[in-house]
């Protein structure tokens, strides 16, 4: 309990929240970097994944992208960016690295979701005279939505957790609270930093679930 109590005390101390290295600033950086990366990744991966799924082609690509993404260490990618001219471009290295890691789960889930749509439903829609675009928008997309949203949620949680690695190459975010606590052997601060990252991940997941309920189609009572 000692460490958790210490973490609570650290979080309760207002002095830790203000300033350049304070929680508010780091939280802002973390949320900004993760949010931007997720948006860009969605803009890139969802159209490609949905389109490939609609066409029923490129399945190997969609799956292999996901496997390849797992093999590349985030830390190495960030390190490569930091020794390239990108290092002086502010948040660009972190955001780019995070986009690269958010694309695979989004792409794979979008593709798998589209392919998982019952073929007989698609055939029926075509038989009713729907065009390819109509089938895509009115049949496949609504049916694939749960899996696409699952991919989005796991990508979001992953991005929030991974953004802490940026601290290892001196970039901002909540990871800096952890590394600062690490170098000063301040375990309560490390725990506090980890708790903040976990809370942010949970909050993002909650927001996405709520948005899904609000924006999703109205479920008719059976």
């Amino acid at each position: 309990m000692g460490v958790l109590g210490g973490a609570w005390e650290w979080l309760a101390d207002g002095a830790n929240w203000s300033g350049e290295a304070g929680v508010w600033h780091r939280l802002g950086e973390h949320a900004y970097v993760s949010g931007l990366a997720l948006l860009i990744a969605c803009a890139v991966a969802l159209p490609v994944g949905l389109w490939l799924g609609h066409l029923g082609r490129g399945g190997t690509l969609a799956v292999n992208v996901s496997n390849a993404g797992r093999a590349v260490p985030v830390f190495a990618v960030l390190a490569l960016f930091m020794v390239s001219p990108l290092r002086s471009a502010g948040y660009v290295p972190t955001v780019t690295a995070l986009v690269l890691f958010a694309v695979p789960p989004l792409l794979t889930n979008a593709y798998v979701g589209m392919r998982g749509v019952d073929r007989s439903v698609v055939e029926a829609a075509r038989g009713m005279g729907m065009s390819g675009g109509q089938v895509f928008r009115q049949v496949e997309l609504p049916l694939a939505r749960p899996l696409v949203m699952t991919g989005l949620r796991s990508a979001a949680v992953q991005v929030v957790a991974t953004a802490t690695i940026a601290a290892m190459v001196g970039q901002g975010g909540l990871g800096r609270i952890i590394t600062a606590g690490f170098t000063t052997y301040d375990t309560p601060q490390v725990v506090a930093g980890a708790l903040l990252v976990a809370l942010l991940a949970l909050a993002v997941e909650g927001v996405l679930v709520a948005a899904d309920r609000l924006l999703g189609p109205v479920r008719r009572r059976p």
Binding site: T164, I178, F182, G193, A194, A198
Partner: peptide, 14 residues
């Protein structure tokens, strides 16, 4: 799995 790797390694340090 949701614990960030950086935090995991830091937490195991003590």
């Amino acid at each position: 799995y949701t614990v960030p790797s950086l935090a995991m390694f830091s937490l195991l340090l003590p």
